[in-house]
Design a protein around this nucleic acid. Structure first.
Lengths: 347, 347
DNA sequence: CTGAAAGCGCTAACAC
DNA sequence: GTGTTAGCGCTTTCAG
């Protein structure tokens, strides 16, 4: 940079100002500087810049090693987060920390590598958020805690999505509707989507006067299959199912096929917050409310960066709906009502 | 750090040495230093460290915005890459750059933020690799160029995997075997897996004396469905199919169901390099050679870091096989041979 | 094994 | 508008 300054016949500070527009620079001067930079093939050093300015222009994306495993949804999210960071001249660094390792998180946020964090998979009561608040690290949640009134977040509107899902099935004439949630463990851990969706399902079903049955289910096809067998036996009148558990949905479909029944003629299966790429793998392809993963990633990063750059008020709170794509797993309630529960077991 | 040194009654340099073990430090002294650090709640600053030492302890993961879209496989890869970096005291930063944007890559690698890069989705002829070589940036490829003799890489052994796949079907008695590749575009672009798998398929089929038919196919269920219809008409004797195209495989399965045929009784479908999570979504679940994504991510990052830390020779080249998981989409060739091609069109 | 001091490459007062 | 200069917080010679 010193060389650039000399070659352009200006002071280093002027080069610096020209470089990051901190202060106006003469048009003519600026041109000379740019020329000198090109000729010397000069690139400013990110570390030195960060050290001197106390702004690294790095942000971290904190994503937990999920019990549930990472899916396509998460990948879309991460992709768009990285892209958005890049568009804003920021770098995205990835921290894969367990949800309960505040120790690690402390170390990471205090070594000065990043200016702020976007944090995924937030729980209703989340000690990581407490930590971030306490230490004053700028952050934006994907999801939200129970007490998020003063923090920025971008989240899927699970209440609304679940309500829409139930209404969709009820609108097709279904009068007994089931709900398949994520695992009991994630529910008990206060994982927001599980809790909010379950509540919303119960409330909506009640409002609409449809009979309801709600279950947690491990995230696996086998668990989904077992659950379906139980459900169909316990609730012979069940014809519609809302599933917020991608992997379980495959099991449900398989169990139905083995039962000799058909989708959507006998049963309607509506998948919630499942990615498009996965919904189209099943047969029949699943009607789905799919999550706005990319938008969420973009929004979370942009919100954080805007606040870091002082470009926005401190608080941005957004709830995004899932978008319904009707495929082939839903249809009107069968005319004769539910099929008899015989043949429930596979041959 | 200055404060820590004073409180411990030593020079700053000693603190520095104690901190990163660059030089032996008296046991007693080290303890005093540690105490002082704890008492002052001191954290070394990553940027300053990097600036002074010229080693940021950051590495970048370059992943392209894929034509094919990012899947679960990629997510597992990214996860394990981040984890491995973290275990080695490194940070992983994500760069989502187009395969042909060498300009951007130049800027990124020269701003000194990272010490090296792991680069995904390498093509047989890849100008990004040329660039990295030219600029002397340490790197490790995931995949490999055609001329990779002097560079480190970790790749899936597509030759072997494809050979195993063909043999598996041939071993089940199938005598006409098809291959569904990724898109023609990715093949033409010299995407390694497409090219190598196609070659290996052709060679193996020839060796085994089975009749073969090989096709590229857009990455979508619709394309897979269309392709199957064409295939079944053109090759009435076809009973076994190797599919290296996750999304197309769903279409194939759907087309077969619509044709009124059954898997695996009438046709065997063997999926290659498809993730476990997706293979289990279909009905029947796909027999799959699934890719060692996590190992690949770990290996790539570890290789790069080892070389950065001078802990290994300059060259590490590894080819990992995919692992066969037999599910329910493959079986012996039907006794009567292929079913007649009538009813190929859906009702 | 320890200490003093010269930077790493840049930013941001402060003066002009 | 532009120039001077004192750091940012650490590492690493070099001398002891």
């Amino acid at each position: 940079m010193y060389d650039v300054a000399r070659r352009a016949g200006v002071a280093v500070s002027t080069v610096s100002y020209a470089l990051n527009g901190t202060r106006p620079v003469g048009k003519e001067t600026a041109a000379r500087i740019r020329r000198a930079m090109d000729e010397l093939d000069y690139r400013p050093n990110a570390l030195a810049r960060g050290l001197a300015s106390k702004r690294s222009r790095n942000i971290a994306l904190i994503f937990p090693a999920l019990e549930r495993g990472l899916g396509i949804t998460e990948m879309e999210f991460v992709s768009s987060a990285a892209e958005t960071a890049s568009e804003n001249g920021y770098h995205l660094v990835l921290w894969s920390t367990p949800v309960d390792d505040t120790e690690l998180l402390t170390r990471l946020t205090r070594d000065g590598l990043v200016d702020g964090v976007v944090i995924m998979e937030v729980h209703l009561a989340d000690e990581r958020i407490d930590l971030l608040r306490r230490t004053g690290v700028p952050f934006c949640m994907i999801g939200r805690t129970a007490d998020c009134a003063d923090d920025s977040y971008a989240d899927i509107d699970f209440e609304q999505t679940t309500r829409d899902a139930v209404r969709h099935l009820a609108g097709l004439g279904h009068t007994t509707i089931g709900f398949v949630n994520h695992s009991q463990r994630s529910f008990d851990a206060g994982y927001g989507p599980s809790v909010r969706a379950a509540e919303s399902f119960a409330r909506t079903a009640e409002e609409l006067g449809v009979r309801q049955v709600s279950r947690c289910c491990a995230d696996s096809p086998a668990a989904g299959r077992r659950l379906w067998r139980e459900l169909v036996e316990r609730e012979p009148d069940l014809t519609g199912l809302v599933v917020m558990n991608e992997r379980a949905s495959a099991g449900v479909l398989a169990a139905i096929a083995e039962q000799g029944a058909r989708v959507p003629e006998d049963y309607s299966i509506l998948s919630v917050a499942s990615s498009e790429r996965v919904a189209e793998m099943t047969y029949p392809p699943l009607t789905t409310f799919h999550p706005p993963s990319a938008e969420l990633g973009r929004l979370g990063v942009q919100t954080l960066i805007d606040s870091l750059d002082g470009r926005s008020g401190p608080l941005v709170q957004k709830l995004l709906p899932c978008k319904l794509v009707v495929r082939e797993s839903t249809g009107p309630r069968p005319a004769g009502g539910a099929r008899p529960p015989i043949g429930t077991e596979a041959p």
